[in-house]
Design a protein around this nucleic acid. Structure first.
Lengths: 227, 227, 227, 227
DNA sequence: CATGAATGAGGCTTCATTCAT
DNA sequence: GATGAATGAAGCCTCATTCAT
């Protein structure tokens, strides 16, 4: 039990089960075709956001990308733009969780999990080239105006706090060197996000190489000094 | 000459002299009041962008922030929104250059300049709390649609390329360890930008501490292995 | 025959038997469940209109109020919004007729019938708090664009004409004083409708007291001068 | 002073000076042409509302009526539909005040002022055939959702309360008979509004005759019994 | 130089209605 | 009979931009 808890201690979306659960927990009350349409629209939104950016991701563009005849269709399936964006993030987190979690939990050491976290996160770029860029766009443009989005942002904050706590534990266990764990978490997140953003535009970037390099980088940065 | 060139080799805005020069090189033909008006509008834009984000930074809001009665004023002084945004970036780059360059050039070693680059960049948050967040917002939302912006983005690419080249030279000179210099540059940029974004919203973050921690982090990441 | 005709001479919905008969005369061809569904929808419409006003009474709101899952249900049972609104008025008129007619016909004098008309009309507010407000809302917002509604409005006009005629007869019979019977009818209608509208929003208003006061008022207004 | 205060004691818009003052008190900060445009739009809105009803009075129709090219123009001059409707009511009240006040204040007795109130109110229909119908439409469709409109409705309530108070004073002074003054005020208002609504659609109605008849009616209704 | 009124496109949303299942 | 997904029009509003003054 303890082992399993520690095994996933760096997973980005650890806290997501309560907040970002599939369809926000309302999936039971949705028809099959309704769920399919929502998924289709969310997919189109991810493509548009990744390609054209958050600002240009209007309902009109998303509807066109999804092959829908009108924007009314989107408003019919989502209660508003915030709702759609929440679902976009939820979809990305679900995909990322499914991909990253087993790879992280397979590692036995803290540094192994850190490497798995970084490499599997960036490896997602090959499997789902639009998912992470879209999420970075959405988060970059979210302000805490709407109450529902405020709760959303708070959940993401909680994830960061958890990661910081896990990293501190690894330090105390002697697996990492001395450093401010919060700054380290922010640096990792920022480095990954920056790389994701660039990779979305620059096809020359090879995710495999970059992932490994980035993992090496942060392994050196977290290593104990005397080694 | 060589010394001077090396002295600024990590400076973000090294290449800006051609592209982002004050008023795009048209300053000679501008009157004093015109320049003042432009500066006033750019300042207001920076405040609005930093506070409300790129999406909400409409001419209407910027005009209100600047104390102008109409948006026509902005269109009168700028050829369009892209023009204003370019000027916003230019202003930030100019301020950052003035602040960072002497601190970087004062260092004699590559690692010293890297530390000065990171620390002085983050220190800017205290002196100009809105400048860097605004620039990160603008860059995050710029797409290369407009030809004028395409050239803009290309210039920024050139800066990155230059930084990569300088870092490679330092590696060859034995001052840094082995790593992919491009990934390193992207990681540094991403980590700083991520921290800037967070600092803009979270007042608990102390730029001084974070800057030093981040510099330590990347010092370990770039250090030669045998040390 | 004459007695019976005179007995109901102030009844608002006298002419309704031809125009507003249950289900517009098509009831024979309707199944039981169909009629029940229509009644359910009409009831929900009355509640929504009374509470939120005509403008906000969309099919969506009415369906929600009726516990229906989609607006298609309403369009399926009614040929359009006009049809539904006609049925709303019909339902109110039917209820009002059932309540008011016996009370009016029980009176032997013109002034007695006038009082019974006013008091029983307002007393309806206690028994069916939403019916009259809903009808006032509908009538206030109906324009004679649609041919079917034009006929509808004409029928209501005919009722007014009939009331005017009955009132003139009472004047000639020496039961009322001298006044323009059409203005009197309009004033009575307007006073009642205004009170109904207010009572729908202001719970302090006591229908019993107001009904008696209003009847007193118009008794004085219609009384012969020499009394 | 007392005489003057009592002289206008039945005036509908007595309390309007604080709430409905010209342009809501912001007129000083408005350009001449801006004020003209606003007046033009308000006028067009009054025409459309009077003719087609509140529900059909969309910005599109109002813009067309005003000869404007787009609805954006209306949004440019008014902060929203509520703002426009408030101005519509304000305009009607201003016109009504200018017309009715001197006619009411010219009367020395309570019954004279009541008659002047009713007759001058209805006489407005000839001078401004659309004003009163439009106001009745707006008030009939207003719900207290918006806070700014809630305050608006409260102001109208205060006017009614004032009229009730004045009427009670006249009763105590022996100028009127015994009746519930609140019901009387509501009946007068309802009768006038009903007549206004009908007159807007039925050209056969002669305001002069109706006004005199209605004044006669309420004179009898308010007269002391022993006369 | 500066103003602010005007424009037209586009944004999100809601509406009544239709239709395949 | 009943459902709910789909449609297209229309609603209000905000945007960047232009132009006469």
């Amino acid at each position: 039990m303890l082992a399993r808890a520690r095994a996933r201690y760096l997973l980005l979306m650890e806290a997501s089960h309560s907040t970002f659960k599939q369809d926000g927990g309302a999936s039971a009350s949705r028809t099959f075709t309704e769920a399919a349409r929502r998924a289709q629209i969310v997919g189109a939104a991810i493509e548009v956001i990744a390609e054209s950016g958050y600002a240009k991701a209007s309902f009109t563009r998303i509807a066109k990308q999804a092959g829908l005849s009108s924007t009314g269709m989107i408003s019919y399936h989502f209660s508003g733009k915030d709702d759609l964006m929440r679902e976009v993030v939820g979809e990305v987190l679900r995909v990322a969780d499914a991909y990253m979690r087993p790879r992280i939990e397979a590692q036995a050491t803290a540094s192994g999990r850190l490497r798995a976290y970084i490499e599997s996160n960036i490896a997602l770029l090959k499997e789902f080239p639009n998912h992470l860029p879209a999420m970075v766009e959405v988060f970059g443009n979210l302000r805490g105006e709407d109450p529902s989005l405020r709760e959303f942002a708070a959940a993401m904050e909680a994830v960061v706090d958890l990661q910081v706590e896990r990293m501190r534990e690894a330090q105390e266990a002697g697996e990492f060197g001395e450093f401010d764990p919060r700054v380290m978490v922010m640096a990792i997140r920022g480095a990954i996000d920056g790389l994701v953003t660039r990779a979305a535009k620059d096809p020359r970037i090879d995710p495999d190489v970059c992932g490994r390099e980035l993992a090496d980088l942060f392994e050196r940065a977290t290593r104990k000094a005397d080694r």
